[in-house]
């Protein structure tokens, strides 16, 4: 499966044959085409006993060019939820502005400072975004993103869910978008295969798993970066660090890799 955002929303190669890129050279009349331009790669997240940990690197790519190396892809909503964006960066900015307006509207009715009750929680936010992205898909004007939403549900239990550009949504103890679904998800499932497993994880363990996954993604995903953002959502709020450096990298394994393409020795 091709996990690059460029492949999202396209007819699958193994179903419809190789993708026809000729439209890119077309000098004729412009058609109402849609494709992601500047993109962010994987977002990963895992639930633990008292909350959720999420991470994404700080890179926005322009095709294979590492175009913007200082892009923050984790966004905080109402101090209580985090949204991780992968896919098109301009659509992410649109959504970010839209959510800013939404959070201002929410504060009209409830300006009390010490209570979060009555405000949109992560489960509400996820439902809202699912409806929004599904509506845009129905209009054939999709927002080219896959989002992870982390926070708490109505029962104050840790909540983690995903929505993509078609409005498909699901939840799981751990989630990953893009390449992460192939590279990080198996690692995270070793620690949190079920909700019960996730409820036993400590915060430190969860952060450690996420950092390990970010390292694996940097090793193997060519559209990734070693600077990343990491957020921990707890009942007290969101702790977001936006300029972390991957630590303890070891590229020794690279020596062992042989036999790709024309390489024979």
């Amino acid at each position: 499966m091709d996990h690059r955002p460029q492949a999202w929303g396209r007819p699958r190669d193994d179903v419809y044959g190789a993708y026809d890129h000729s439209y890119l050279q077309n000098s004729g009349p412009r058609q109402a085409t849609q494709a992601p331009i500047v993109t962010g790669t994987s977002v990963i997240a895992i639930k633990y006993k008292n909350g959720v940990v999420m991470a994404a690197d700080n890179l926005a790519s322009y095709g294979s060019l590492a175009r913007f190396p200082d892009v923050k892809r984790l966004r905080v909503f109402l101090d209580s939820s985090v949204i991780g964006f992968s896919g098109d960066v301009s659509d992410m900015q649109f959504l970010d502005r839209h959510l800013t307006e939404l959070s201002i509207d929410e504060a009209y009715e409830d300006p009390s400072s010490d209570s979060k009750a009555g405000q949109l929680n992560a489960a509400n936010l996820h439902k809202y975004l699912q409806k929004l992205l599904y509506k845009r898909r129905n209009d054939f004007d999709p927002l080219w993103n896959q989002l992870l939403i982390a926070g708490f549900d109505g029962d104050s239990k840790p909540y983690l869910a995903s929505v993509d550009l078609r409005g498909t949504s699901f939840t799981s103890p751990s989630l990953a978008t893009g390449f992460g679904s192939a590279l990080a998800q198996p690692i995270m499932r070793r620690y949190a295969a079920t909700e019960e497993d996730a409820a036993k994880l400590s915060r430190e363990e969860a952060v450690e798993v996420i950092k390990e996954c970010m390292k694996v993604l940097y090793y193997r995903d060519a559209r990734s970066l070693d600077r990343y953002s990491i957020a921990v959502v707890t009942k007290e709020g969101v702790e977001l660090k936006e300029d972390e450096q991957l630590e303890k990298q070891s590229w020794a394994f690279a020596e062992q890799i042989k036999g790709y393409g024309t390489q024979t020795v």
Binding site: G9, R10, P11, D14, V15, Y16, G17, D20, S22, Y23, Q31, T33, Q34, A35, R137, N138, F140, P142, R166
Partner: peptide, 19 residues
């Protein structure tokens, strides 16, 4: 995997979002 692997017709082609 339930679609035949036929080549797209030549000439006018349209790229669309697959919903």
């Amino acid at each position: 995997n339930d679609a035949p692997r036929t080549a797209a017709p030549e000439g006018a082609r349209q790229h669309r979002f697959d919903p």
